[in-house]
């Protein structure tokens, strides 16, 4: 993380190294629920999910968000991340494999820093879009 990305590394259109994660298992969801302290039983308790009219438990949106954040900070270093945000477009199911993509959209100046705006997405193996958002990263 010592080397800070420059505007040369982050030209509009350049892609971040993609990152795949999964398949998402039930035990991973249990571990993520504990690690994230999420109290929502719908992610880990199939009895609860069925009683709520759902076919099965489903993954935490923040799990995909965490993987997308990891993709971005593996690229730029955690200290360079200024903002990250996403909309959870579709639910991620048990056994899904998530692949995260990031693309530089533009570079601009804000408060004396050069920032790269990165479009980020997480998609499942069958092409469903689970999450889409963007990150702002400070360049050196």
């Amino acid at each position: 993380m010592e080397q800070i990305l420059s505007s040369e590394d982050a030209r509009p259109g350049s892609a971040l190294p993609e990152l795949s994660f999964g398949p998402i298992s039930r035990s991973l969801l249990a571990q993520y629920a504990g690690a994230s302290r999420d109290p929502d039983p719908v992610h880990i308790d199939i009895d609860f999910a069925r009683a709520a009219g759902l076919p099965d438990v489903f993954a935490h949106g923040m799990l995909s968000f965490g993987i997308v954040s990891r993709m971005v900070t593996q690229w730029c270093g955690v200290e360079q991340l200024r903002e990250i945000g996403a909309r959870f477009v579709a639910v991620t199911q048990v056994h899904d494999v998530i692949t995260c993509h990031g693309t530089v959209i533009e570079c601009f100046e804000r408060a004396g820093e050069t920032l790269a705006r990165i479009e980020v997405t997480a998609t499942t193996q069958d092409g469903r879009n689970a999450l889409s958002g963007e990150a702002l990263v400070a360049l050196g």
């Binding site: 039983p41 719908v42 009683a51 709520a52 009219g53 923040m62 903002e83 996403a86």
Partner: peptide, 24 residues
Amino acid sequence: LTEVIGCDFRHLLHGEQHFAYDGL
């Protein structure tokens, strides 16, 4: 807070999340 605002986990979904960082 989840109780104060009336979250019902049977219907609850996470719609969006955004973070702005001023420090680590």
